[in-house]
Computed example of a mutant assay.
Amino acid sequence: MKRYYLTVFEKDGTNVLDEAFEAENDDKAKDIGSQKLAEKGYDSYTHRCVAPDGRLVLFHR
């Protein structure tokens, strides 16, 4: 399992969520990240999910 990082921002750049989670691969991480965003009501906010090596797995501006 790899550790991925999900971050959500307000329009002014303030962090509203900074959370780590584990997933088997990038596709699973994208699914888990999207699910977490929807559950918390942050799916329309600016957000990113980053892989352990720094690659963006999920991004919305």
Rank of each mutant, 00 (worst) to 15 (best):
F59I: 05
F9I: 03
K2S: 13
Y5F: 09
E19K: 15
R55D: 11
T7W: 03
H60F: 09
L6E: 00
P52A: 09
L6V: 00
V8D: 01
A20C: 09
H60I: 06
V8L: 06
V50C: 12
H47M: 00
L17W: 12
T46G: 06
E24R: 07
F9D: 05
S44N: 10
K28V: 11
N25F: 02
V57L: 06
R55H: 13
L37K: 01
H47C: 13
D12G: 02
K11N: 07
A51T: 01
R61F: 05
Y4F: 11
T14R: 09
A51N: 10
I32P: 02
D12K: 03
L17P: 03
K30T: 14
F21Y: 15
V50R: 11
G54D: 08
R3D: 05
N25K: 08
R55Q: 14
L58W: 06
Y5K: 14
C49F: 05
G41Y: 04
D43A: 11
L6N: 01
K30S: 15
R55M: 06
R48D: 04
R3V: 13
V16P: 05
R55V: 08
Y5D: 09
H60G: 13
V8T: 04
M1R: 12
V16N: 05
R55G: 08
D53E: 14
T7D: 02
